[in-house]
Write a protein that binds this DNA or RNA. Structure first.
Length: 286
DNA sequence: CTTGGGTCCTGTGCGC
DNA sequence: TGCGCACAGGACCCAA
């Protein structure tokens, strides 16, 4: 589900309730997420004080005063919901807010010393969590091969040029590869390729440098706009207070099969690449 | 090494 | 209304 903008929005939602707080109580209703929760998960978290909240690629990271870092990936349908101790009541059926998730899929509950509760809900259970020694996080298999942050200083047309060198793989698949650049998913790759007018089927290694510069800039632009919009709410995703993201209203290509291209008016195509849908305009994207 | 396909899991929306 | 199938924001694992 969530790509970089959604995870960043979740991070911003969790920060005010978690940063600086002590975890008073942890409840694990299910430990069989994509991977089993680490051993003594509850004991290692209870009593710990949370420091910084960070994001790396699509991972959320909560620094703990125990020397460990709590790491969480939302998979396709993972969602954090904050229940403040002082709950602001909301009108039922408010169109700007998501329906609360099915409690049957609430797998982990975190309670802070302020009495705020944070529930992790994940119907498909593709999400996963771990506790990692802070000084060894870069060696963890989930982080070892991650490429640069698309919003950081390393990511550029030059980086893409280097990473794509000799690649026969399509540029669409290459951008989804977290070793090339970390944090993109199906939506934002489709959007960025459309805005940059690059054909998703084009072999990554055969794109001229000026177009890679443009593509890298487009990736940044799309992600920044999406973060500003609070991410994209299609099915499961909502912000931690239940508010919907609204970047889905700004999709130019994703999920718009058969609709007219905003640029040329011809029909948008849906093709399959590496088992996943790609939306593109075969006329505008070259 | 690279690449594509199958896989995990549940829910939803569509055509019949 | 019900059924079966395709598909969904991810990414690991394995075979070619």
């Amino acid at each position: 589900m969530p790509e970089l903008p959604e995870v960043e929005t979740v991070r911003r939602g969790l920060e005010p309730v978690l940063a600086g707080r002590r975890l008073r109580r942890i409840e694990t209703r299910r430990s069989d997420l994509r991977f089993p929760l680490p051993r003594r998960f509850r004991e290692r978290l209870e009593g710990a004080r949370v420091g910084r909240l960070d994001r790396r690629a699509k991972f959320l990271l909560a620094e703990l005063d125990t020397g460990e870092v709590f790491v969480s990936h939302l998979g396709m349908s993972g969602r954090y919901v904050v229940h403040p101790a002082e709950a602001p009541e909301r009108a039922l059926g408010d169109p700007y807010f998501a329906a609360p998730p099915d409690p049957a899929h609430t797998h982990v509950v975190f309670e802070t010393d302020r009495g705020d509760r944070i529930e992790y809900n994940d119907p498909r259970r593709f999400g996963y969590m771990d506790l990692v020694a802070a000084d060894a996080i870069g060696l963890h298999p989930w982080f070892l091969d991650l490429g640069p942050e698309p919003l950081g200083g390393v990511f550029s047309g030059e980086h893409l040029s280097e990473a794509f060198k000799g690649k026969q793989q399509s540029v669409k698949s290459a951008l989804l590869d977290q070793r090339v650049v970390a944090g993109l998913g199906n939506i934002y790759v489709c959007e960025a390729l459309f805005r940059a007018r690059v054909d998703p089927r084009r072999p990554a290694g055969r794109i001229a440098r000026p177009r890679l510069d443009r593509l890298a800039q487009t990736v940044r632009d799309v992600l920044l706009e999406a973060i500003e919009a609070g991410g994209s709410s299609l099915r499961d995703y909502a912000r931690t207070d239940g508010a919907l993201g609204y970047f889905q209203h700004r999709f130019q290509i994703y999920d718009r099969e058969s609709e007219p291209c905003v640029n040329c008016g011809r029909k948008i195509h849906r093709i399959t690449q590496a088992g996943r849908s790609t939306f593109c305009c075969v006329h505008c994207q070259r």
